[in-house]
């Protein structure tokens, strides 16, 4: 079967537009070069773009994005209707004071489950999805070097994680400011930041959470190389995320808590202190980077040594 056939094959299975075009591009971009080592520049970029197209054009993923975006709207509207967030935690209580807190509260609410689910869906699909559709071996025939393919998948995961947090924060920020207004931002420490500084802190929160989600995505990337069932991989990633949170809540397991992938996630709250408290944020960043490195390396070790038969 030729590489062009592979494009057709993939297109009939995965439906989203641009997929046939994807392999078509890859073929025209790379095939003439002949050897795996002589891939022209721009091919990686094309692969990356086609990977992003695959993620952002899937109806399933768009539906997920709607759920992510709905949460801040629901939070903002319900607090607007009920009149106050009194009696709740600081994040919720301050929503009526400054609209940016809608974004922060939405991130807080979605971090335990919805955002990890979104990342798990994409990460579980990375390799297992291609294998399941039977497109993986054709991708490799094209030829795409396995290491490069994996790194492109990881890069797409990073973009996706960032876009997911920014989507929640963006929708929350816009809806919040529309309903509750923009103004100086009260911090947890009892000081006040200007609105611009507040937006800056919100972006920092998004950056930190993106790192945390990428670490989970890297775990997913590895799991995805172990199976040909994308759904199994996705569920496994979710099990990892939820189990880690459960273990983190058991005080008897305190000695291992700091090694759990989800342990430092809520340190993002420290970005709302003034001055920012780095005691938990720094280990959080280190932990996220370490998980990303270890599991990307594990995915690489697995993917570059495994027999691809589908």
């Amino acid at each position: 079967m030729s590489a062009a056939d592979a494009g057709l094959h993939r297109a009939t299975h995965t439906a989203p537009a641009g997929d046939a075009e994807r392999l078509g591009n890859l073929v025209t971009g790379m095939a003439p070069a002949g050897g795996a080592r002589a891939v022209p520049r721009g091919a990686t970029w094309r692969l990356f773009r086609s990977e992003l197209r695959l993620i952002y054009r899937r109806r399933r993923n768009l539906a997920g994005a709607l759920v992510l975006a709905a949460v801040p709207i629901i939070i903002a509207v319900s607090i607007r209707v009920s009149g106050s967030g009194d009696g709740d935690s600081f994040l919720f209580g301050q929503i009526t004071v400054n609209g940016l807190f809608v974004a922060l509260a939405a991130l807080f609410v979605q971090m335990p489950f919805f955002l990890p689910t979104a990342v798990a869906t994409i990460a579980g699909d990375t390799v297992a999805g291609e294998a399941n559709q039977g497109t993986l071996r054709y991708l490799l025939v094209v030829p795409v070097e396995r290491t490069r393919l994996l790194l492109v998948k990881l890069a797409a995961l990073v973009v996706f994680a960032a876009s997911a947090t920014l989507l929640v924060a963006g929708v929350g920020g816009v809806v919040g400011v529309a309903l509750f207004g923009a103004g100086p931002l009260p911090t947890i420490s009892g000081t006040t930041l200007s609105f611009a500084e507040g937006v800056g802190r919100l972006l920092l929160v998004c950056g930190y959470l993106t790192l945390c989600l990428v670490a989970l995505g890297a775990i997913g990337l590895f799991i995805s190389t172990l199976t040909e069932q994308p759904l199994a991989a996705t569920i496994a990633v979710l099990v990892v995320a939820l189990t880690s949170q459960i273990l983190d809540a058991l005080s008897q397991l305190e000695p291992i808590h700091e090694y759990l992938p989800t342990h430092w996630w809520f340190a993002f709250v420290d970005l709302l202190r003034d001055p920012v408290a780095t005691e938990a944020l720094l280990p959080g960043v280190v932990s996220a980077l370490a998980y990303t490195a270890v599991f990307t390396a594990a995915a690489w070790a697995r993917f570059t040594t495994k027999d691809i038969s589908s």
Binding site: S89, F90, I188, G190, A277
Partner: peptide, 25 residues
């Protein structure tokens, strides 16, 4: 004093003492 989601702060500014509880604003 840092809590997971809050902060209890006491500021002595030389004249008065302020306390701030973020849980209750």
């Amino acid at each position: 004093l840092h809590g997971e989601m809050g902060e209890l702060t006491a500021v002595s500014d030389g004249e008065d003492l302020w306390t701030w509880s973020s849980d209750d604003r």
